[in-house]
């Protein structure tokens, strides 16, 4: 089992008030699976993704990634896991504005200590994978929204992670561009990558093997999709 969470809780304390963002989620994801997480705004999707992505630690509960208990690690240990195991794709792309596409894609490899020749090779491969090898020297403001998201996807891919986590990857894109991105996700999945995509849109979730619906920090229901063709 690639991901296994046991009764995960995340409780934020805002002043005297407590926000129960994630309330006892137990979840398993197998290697190579394509999972979609759906739910209304404020239901705790992003919070759950932060926990799965090792950006945050749960208030309570256990999280095993590749069999390793990661719910109790320090910040720097989590950073190490992120640089090796996780690739993030955000709604707002989150590219470094002053860096070229190639440099953005290289960044995770810098932080996991990949030697420079291999780093450049892998970054170029990742850009090829998203059909952007001709835009390597462009900066984000010279790229369209869809191209930016593809650079972000290449960045998530470059360190060859165990999981790619995407939080509303099509949220800032028009329908046509969004579906291009989703086709790219489909291609990555068919190449054996494990994907977790958070979305509002059923149209986007449709690409997944399995959809988990979340409400008020709890799993409301789970549905398994059978692929046509």
């Amino acid at each position: 089992m690639l991901i296994k969470t046991e009764n995960l809780w995340k409780i934020y304390e805002v002043g005297a008030e407590k926000v129960h963002a994630v309330q006892g989620i137990s979840l398993e994801v197998e290697k190579g699976e394509y999972l979609a997480i759906m739910g209304p705004s404020g239901s705790g999707k992003s919070t759950l993704m932060n926990l799965i992505g090792c950006l945050d630690t749960p208030t309570r509960g256990k999280y095993f990634l590749n069999g390793q208990l990661v719910s109790q690690l320090t910040d720097d240990e989590l950073a190490r896991i992120r640089s090796k195991e996780i690739g993030f794709v955000f709604q707002t792309f989150n590219l470094l504005p002053r860096a070229t596409a190639l440099h953005n894609v290289e960044l995770p490899l810098i932080y996991n200590g990949t030697p420079s020749a291999e780093r450049i090779r892998r970054a170029k491969d990742a850009l090829k994978m998203v059909d952007l090898e001709d835009r390597m020297t462009h900066r984000p403001n010279e790229l369209s929204g869809g191209q930016r998201q593809r650079v972000a996807l290449a960045r998530a891919l470059s360190n060859n992670p165990s999981i790619i986590l995407a939080d509303e990857p099509t949220g800032n894109l028009d329908t046509a561009t969004g579906s291009e991105i989703m086709q790219l996700f489909g291609r990555l999945h068919s190449q054996g990558n494990t994907l977790i995509v958070i979305t509002h849109e059923a149209e986007v979730a449709r690409y997944a093997d399995r959809i988990i619906h979340i409400r008020d920090g709890k799993i409301e229901k789970e549905e398994r999709l059978t692929k046509q063709g």
Binding site: G53, A79, R82, F88, L107, Y111
Partner: peptide
């Protein structure tokens, strides 16, 4: 701040 957040999300440690 945001740039720092991005860097950390994709694997930068404190010392980086």
């Amino acid at each position: 701040t945001r740039e720092i957040g991005i860097r950390k999300a994709i694997g930068a440690r404190r010392k980086d």
